[in-house]
Lab assay of single mutants.
Amino acid sequence: IEKFKLLAEKVEEIVAKNARAEIDYSDAPDEFRDPLMDTLMTDPVRLPSGTVMDRSIILRHLLNSPTDPFNRQMLTESMLEPVPELKEQIQAWMREKQSSDH
């Protein structure tokens, strides 16, 4: 029984630690959010139409349809242009958020 109590305490400790580690990014500025999924972008790319999306989301879309989801023009992965300035701004915002939450 004592071992179970210790195990339960350890589990509670881990759960509390994980809860502290989770950071809420739901208040991200609109320009940091993917327009299709409304999630925080981690690897922004510009489509030929000028729309900026997260790379993982547009690549997932391209698996089903080789088109720009906003104007239905033909689109391939090679046409995606990285946006390193925005990526750095997002990373800086995330770092600031992490340091203010801890």
Rank of each mutant, 00 (worst) to 15 (best):
I1F: 02
I1S: 15
E2L: 00
E2Q: 08
E2A: 07
E2K: 10
K3N: 13
K3Q: 05
F4S: 10
F4V: 08
K5P: 08
K5R: 09
L7V: 07
L7R: 10
A8I: 06
A8G: 13
E9R: 12
E9W: 05
E9G: 08
K10G: 11
K10Q: 11
K10H: 07
V11W: 05
V11Q: 11
E12K: 12
E12Q: 14
E12H: 07
E13D: 13
E13T: 03
E13Y: 15
I14F: 15
I14N: 12
V15F: 06
V15L: 12
V15K: 12
V15A: 12
V15W: 04
A16E: 12
A16T: 10
A16R: 05
K17R: 12
K17I: 07
K17N: 12
K17A: 15
N18H: 09
N18T: 09
N18Q: 05
N18I: 08
N18K: 07
N18D: 14
A19V: 11
A19P: 10
R20E: 11
R20H: 13
R20M: 07
A21S: 10
E22A: 06
E22V: 09
E22Y: 13
I23A: 14
I23K: 14
I23M: 14
D24H: 08
D24L: 04
D24K: 02
D24G: 11
Y25Q: 08
Y25V: 02
Y25D: 15
S26K: 15
S26C: 14
S26H: 11
S26I: 15
D27N: 09
D27E: 12
D27F: 14
A28V: 13
A28P: 10
P29Q: 04
P29S: 04
D30A: 07
E31K: 08
F32S: 01
R33I: 05
R33G: 01
R33S: 05
D34G: 00
D34H: 00
P35H: 01
P35Q: 01
P35A: 02
L36S: 02
M37V: 07
M37I: 05
D38I: 12
D38H: 03
T39N: 07
T39D: 15
L40R: 01
M41L: 05
M41T: 00
M41R: 00
T42N: 15
T42A: 12
D43N: 08
D43H: 07
V45A: 03
R46T: 05
R46K: 15
R46G: 04
P48L: 01
S49C: 04
G50E: 07
G50V: 00
G50N: 03
G50R: 09
G50D: 03
T51N: 12
T51S: 13
V52D: 02
M53V: 15
M53G: 05
M53A: 15
M53T: 15
R55H: 05
S56P: 08
I57F: 14
I57T: 15
I57S: 14
L59P: 01
R60C: 03
R60P: 01
H61Y: 01
L62R: 02
L62P: 01
L63R: 10
N64S: 06
N64Y: 15
N64L: 04
S65L: 03
S65F: 05
S65G: 03
P66C: 07
T67A: 02
T67P: 00
T67N: 06
T67H: 03
D68Y: 00
D68Q: 00
P69H: 00
P69A: 00
F70Y: 15
F70S: 00
F70R: 02
N71S: 06
Q73R: 06
M74Q: 08
M74I: 11
M74K: 12
L75M: 04
L75V: 03
T76L: 10
T76R: 05
T76Y: 06
E77R: 08
E77V: 05
S78K: 11
S78A: 13
S78C: 11
S78Y: 07
M79V: 04
E81Q: 10
E81S: 14
E81A: 10
E81M: 10
P82H: 04
P82Q: 07
P82S: 15
P82A: 11
V83G: 01
V83Q: 06
V83L: 14
E85Q: 10
L86R: 06
L86V: 05
K87N: 10
E88A: 14
Q89R: 12
Q89L: 08
I90M: 00
I90F: 03
I90L: 07
Q91H: 11
Q91D: 12
Q91Y: 09
Q91R: 13
A92Y: 10
A92G: 12
A92E: 05
W93F: 14
W93K: 02
M94S: 04
M94A: 13
M94F: 15
M94K: 11
M94Q: 12
M94I: 14
R95G: 11
R95W: 04
R95Q: 10
E96H: 05
E96A: 12
E96D: 10
E96G: 11
K97V: 07
K97R: 14
K97Q: 14
K97L: 04
Q98S: 06
Q98M: 04
Q98P: 14
S99T: 13
S99Y: 01
S100D: 15
S100N: 12
S100L: 05
D101C: 06
D101N: 09
D101Q: 12
D101E: 09
D101K: 04
H102A: 06
H102D: 14
H102S: 06
H102N: 12
